[in-house]
Simulated assay, not measured.
Amino acid sequence: MSDTFLQRVDAMVRAATAEDQAFSDLMPQIMSESQGLPPVVLNMAMMKMGEGIAAAPPNLGCWLAIMAGAWVENGATTFGVAEPVLAKTIEVATASGEFADAWRTATGNEPPGPDGQPSQEIVDTVGPHLRDPVGAMMAWFSMERFALSANTMLSKTPDLRAGVTDREHKAKVIDRLAGHCEQMGWVGLLLRVLDGERLLVLERESRRGWTVTIGGIGDNFQLHTLLAGALIGRPGGLPGTPPSPEVIACFQDADTPPDRPVISSPWNLVDAHGEWIYNEGVPYDIPAVNGTRVVVLDPPSYTRHFPAGRKHPLMTGSLTLDGMHEPEDLAGWWPHIAPARNPVGA
């Protein structure tokens, strides 16, 4: 059974790469057949799928990417496909940005929705302004599928996120398309997720501090809660009642129940410059001092309530407490830490 399936996958990938009409028959057959297969069989097909995603034109490679993403969400490995999906998504995003610019230049209007269909009329419209108008058009109409797959790959693969080079440039290329394709906006957010990042956490009142390592944290609601779980009511931590294990699990890797628990915030999070670290933001935006991002814990100005759960449900979040620092250990840090500023002027 597995040998037959792998042979069909190989045939499908060859058809996609060669732009053979057989692809339109093979793709739905393999998608249907794969639904009953265990992850161990799907894993054996992933290297071949990755080769196809890298080599096929975007209008066909995007379907391979969607299929690979579905397999990953059903338990298959990302090995062999995660890097090709992300690389192709960046490539498609770059071409899509050029398509959008050419369309605006040619028409004075916003480009058609990426869920539409390619046409000769579209090629004729952008053709005078692009070196490869057909390729740019195909990229535009495939970007949503690549973005869906890239969301899965980035969410499920910490090594892929951690290995992104030229991160801010790539995120900006993606961000340009967020107004046209919501999924691209999510890719941009995931490109800015930090993994294996050390933070220095300081409590202003006691002048104590802690070093923590974070990974897979999608927003500062999640950071806030995992910090509370690591520090409150723990030896060497802070007094109080920590969030329940069930709530903490919702911010790590557990499914959030339909009746989402609502929790309250124990602190204001403030950066080294005294600016508030808003829960709606992300750890990536916290400024560094001497190469280290700093979070200062202040008493809350008002009670904040928010529901449990992760911004990126497929991504596992982690926060590890690495060490505690007494006030005398931090004497050299506090001169670099500004007083908190109240953004509402109260």
Rank of each mutant, 00 (worst) to 15 (best):
M1I: 03
S2L: 03
A16N: 10
A18E: 02
A18H: 06
A18N: 04
D20N: 08
Q21G: 11
A22Y: 02
D25P: 01
M27L: 14
I30N: 10
I30Q: 12
S32P: 01
S34N: 05
S34W: 03
Q35T: 12
G36N: 13
P38N: 12
L42Y: 07
A45S: 15
M49W: 02
G50H: 07
E51C: 09
A55D: 05
A55Y: 02
G61T: 08
G61F: 06
V72Y: 01
N74W: 11
N74H: 13
N74R: 15
G75K: 05
A76E: 06
T77E: 05
T77R: 04
T78Q: 06
V81G: 00
V81E: 00
V85M: 09
L86T: 01
I90W: 06
V92E: 04
G97A: 12
G97N: 10
F99I: 03
A100R: 03
A106N: 12
G108K: 14
N109R: 14
P114C: 13
P118G: 09
S119Q: 09
Q120L: 10
T125L: 10
V126T: 07
G127H: 10
P128I: 10
R131M: 06
M137S: 08
M137Q: 14
M138G: 01
F141G: 06
S142Q: 05
E144T: 09
A147E: 05
S149Q: 07
N151W: 02
M153G: 01
S155H: 01
K156E: 01
K156D: 03
V164I: 11
T165C: 07
E168M: 11
E168N: 11
K170Q: 13
V173N: 03
D175E: 14
H180V: 00
M184A: 15
G185K: 03
V187M: 12
G188F: 04
L190K: 11
L191S: 10
V193F: 01
V193I: 07
E197I: 06
R198Y: 09
R198W: 06
E205F: 09
G209F: 00
V212E: 06
V212A: 14
I214V: 12
G215E: 04
G215H: 04
L226Y: 00
L226G: 00
A228Q: 02
G229C: 06
A230P: 04
L231E: 09
L231G: 13
R234I: 05
G240W: 08
E246Q: 15
Q252Y: 07
Q252M: 15
D255G: 13
T256Y: 00
P258N: 12
D259W: 08
P261I: 10
V262Y: 05
I263V: 15
N268T: 15
D271Q: 10
A272Q: 07
A272P: 01
E275G: 14
E275C: 14
I277R: 04
I277T: 01
N279F: 03
V282A: 14
D285C: 11
P300F: 05
S301A: 14
Y302R: 15
H305Q: 04
F306E: 02
A308P: 00
K311C: 04
K311R: 11
K311F: 07
K311V: 02
H312R: 08
H312G: 02
M315R: 04
G317V: 00
L319D: 00
T320S: 13
D322M: 11
D322Q: 13
H325R: 14
H325D: 04
H325Q: 08
P327V: 10
E328Y: 09
E328V: 06
D329I: 07
L330K: 02
G332D: 03
W334K: 13
A338Y: 09
A338P: 00
V344S: 13
